[in-house]
Design a protein around this nucleic acid. Sequence first.
DNA 1: AAAATGAGAATGAACGTTCACTCTCAATAA
DNA 2: TTATTGAGAGTGAACGTTCATTCTCATTTT
Lengths: 208, 208
Amino acid sequence: MLETKTQRQSDRRSEILDAAERCFARAGFHRASMQDICGEAAMSPGNLYRYFPSKEALIAGICERNRAEAVASFVLVDAAPEFFEGLAGLARHHLVDRTQDEVALCSEIMAESRRHPDIAKLYQDIEKDIRDRIAGMLKQAAGRDEIRQDVNLDAAASVLMLLGDGMSWRRSVDPNFDPEKVLPLILAMVRGLLAKPDDEAPARGEKS
Amino acid sequence: MLETKTQRQSDRRSEILDAAERCFARAGFHRASMQDICGEAAMSPGNLYRYFPSKEALIAGICERNRAEAVASFVLVDAAPEFFEGLAGLARHHLVDRTQDEVALCSEIMAESRRHPDIAKLYQDIEKDIRDRIAGMLKQAAGRDEIRQDVNLDAAASVLMLLGDGMSWRRSVDPNFDPEKVLPLILAMVRGLLAKPDDEAPARGEKS
DNA sequence: AAAATGAGAATGAACGTTCACTCTCAATAA
DNA sequence: TTATTGAGAGTGAACGTTCATTCTCATTTT
């Protein structure tokens, strides 16, 4: 009985966040008014404010959800039998499968974090989380001897994050951008950077 | 006499744009108020509006300036004796030498173009300009037989732009990001993608 | 004197947020 | 069963503030 109540509240919060996501992706954080969000959520302002104390809290809530989802997606890597396969799966999941709205929202959060200190802290927490995952992934691959030993793992992590950001931005800014077309090139480049010299070419045979 | 007058006007406009740039880089387009800009430009609102008809016109003016500067920077490539050297110079100019504020402003324009249709058109003009330059640069290099012939130049241009955007974003979002550290990796990756198989290693001798 | 340049108060719209209130409905009292 | 109560979900007009923009008037230049 108690549980159903808090469950209902949680559902309602989630619905509101969905509506806010749609508005923010469409218009950006600043141009999306609370009235817009109320309209999208089919709810009056007064009532919405019973669930979230401020507009900023909505943004924070969305960040939190995105973070959880992003971190969860790393199982793709852990589950893959080989490093580069896992990386390709992760890249596809983040950069091709995501809807335009999801990518746009990410861009919005990045842009917003540049000025709003609270959002900045939140976003940098997410970044740190993701960077740690990537670092762990690289370390594991190095331990398994799947990538070269002489590469600076920290710089490599930066490169991977940079590639992700770059593709996200291209998607949200350039209407003609086709992730399917460039992703293979990107992956080939990364392979060139990280793969051990002898199996740099996408070898069919796995033994040598 | 007439010329000095229009010259004075033009100077004044430029000063105002400088002030606006500082404000926008600091607070973003939306949070920087016209009052802020007036303060930074040491000028009253009424007077400022004699030089620019709207806030949007300020943004457009800044875009225009950035575009001119970006396009001009491509002489670095044309002047370089060899393709990869030119590319490295360009990358350094855009991604290392630029101040934090300039990079932040670029991010701001990108984010803004996602929603403001007029800015979007302006920005996509800039993008097209830059993409054309990059495409031309690649074509020339291919003609000179400095890069592999079998690479899709269009996709390669996308990759280069994506790398630029990615580095810009990393700079403006991650305070610990050091362009000096990753740029060599990036350039090595690009070399791996574009260089002809036999001189992929950064050969010292230029003849073979 | 006429025109250009400048200042800064005024304006009105839009925004995030609040507040006084109503509606719904399950639990209790009659 | 029917009437009463009470809590919390929900409403939407109103508030104070902020903002881009305009208006009026003073000063300087030609």
